Amino acid sequence: MADMQGDRHWDENHSRSFLDYGRYFVPERERQIDIIADLIPAAPGGLMVELCCGEGLLSRALLERFPDCRVLALDGSERMREQAQKTCSDHGSRLTTAAFDLADRDWRSFSEPPQAIVSSLAIHHLDGRQKQMLFADVAAALRPGGVFVVADIVRPRSAAGLAIAARQWDEAVRSRSLAIDGDLAAFAEFNRLGWNYFRNPDGEPIDKPSSLAEQLAWLAEAGFTAVDCAWLFAGHAIFSGRKPDVAGQA
């Protein structure tokens, strides 16, 4: 799971920061990973693709949950790809990592249609039009019956919603900092880095989260069925859609 909050450009120093602090900064991280996996139907021997794999925690969970699957883990950071390979070392024969740029379109066709394409904390770096293009391209790439699962920050449409998301995210990081280390050092770093998007939603051009309602509509427009949100907390949502088994049928 990878994120790029707080800076205009991603580099390997940011990768290092996320590797150090991601376990604190991602609300209910373990629960999110479980929910993403729960939304994927089992299929023998299929390909799954993770967009922006980060350190490989989600890819490892998929490899463990689906012992016959293979995972293609894509990330633009060499450091992240190296860490993902280490994280998934027990399943290395079923994992392939590759460099990519999420905004480009040249990676959006595969040697075989994936049964699932997943992404965590990455798509909010695309603007609305880019998200719509991505959703359509993913729908075209998936095999019939395949699923697209997204975990990401989403922008509330009201000031009250932004305030609630900001407060919940602060509370989540504070709680994880205490639970993991018994102190608030990680929470202090969260604040120092300005990681909480909802505290200053228009302050960082690299962050372009869309509303949940917009993205659910775009999934439906791309042809997905069973479009739904499975989880929402602290401005973070998990939502998904399924490619029909036969054109025009769920």
Rank of each mutant, 00 (worst) to 15 (best):
L219M: 09
V118H: 01
V26C: 02
A185F: 11
F190M: 09
D101F: 05
A61K: 11
P156L: 12
I36Q: 02
A160E: 15
K243C: 10
V150G: 06
F100C: 12
D207K: 00
L162H: 08
P244M: 02
I206W: 10
D152Q: 02
P156D: 12
V138Y: 13
M48C: 08
S15R: 04
G46C: 12
G6P: 04
M48E: 09
W195P: 05
I40F: 07
Q168M: 13
W195N: 14
D11Q: 12
E28P: 04
C229W: 00
R94Y: 08
R143E: 10
H124A: 03
E189K: 11
S175T: 15
I206T: 03
L216M: 02
A99T: 13
L19Y: 10
H236K: 13
H14N: 13
Q85N: 11
D75W: 00
A43K: 05
D7R: 10
A98K: 08
S120W: 00
R199S: 14
V246E: 04
A226V: 09
R167K: 14
P44E: 12
E214M: 06
D68F: 02
E171S: 14
A172G: 12
L62H: 05
D228W: 10
T96Y: 02
A141G: 04
E82N: 14
E204N: 15
I180Y: 11
M80L: 04
A136M: 11
K208H: 04
D101T: 07
L57C: 07
E221T: 11
A172H: 11
R176Y: 15
F233G: 07
R31L: 10
M80K: 02
A37H: 04
D106F: 08
L193F: 13
K86M: 13
P201Q: 07
A222G: 03
E64Y: 07
L58F: 05
W169F: 10
Y197W: 08
G22S: 13
R155E: 12
D11L: 01
A2W: 01
V71E: 01
L58M: 05
D20E: 14
R94D: 04
Y197V: 01
P27H: 09
S59D: 01
R129P: 06
S15E: 07
D20Y: 02
E82S: 14
W10P: 01
S211F: 01
R31M: 12
A247I: 13
S109I: 09
P41C: 10
N200C: 10
L121I: 05
S17M: 14
P209L: 00
A99H: 14
F18C: 06
R94H: 10
W218E: 10
A188W: 05
A139Q: 15
K86H: 15
I117P: 03
V118T: 12
S109E: 14
W195C: 03
I35T: 06
R8C: 07
K86G: 12
G194W: 00
C53R: 00
I117Y: 02
I40D: 07
Q85R: 15
H236N: 14
F198L: 12
G146D: 04
E12V: 03
S59Y: 06
Q130H: 09
R129L: 12
E189T: 15
V138D: 01
A165E: 13
L72H: 03
G241P: 09
L51M: 08
F66W: 05
C52G: 11
E112F: 03
I40K: 09
I40W: 05
D75C: 03
L216T: 04
V154E: 03
Y21V: 05
P67M: 06
G145E: 12
K131F: 00
D34H: 08
D104L: 08
R199Q: 14
S177L: 11
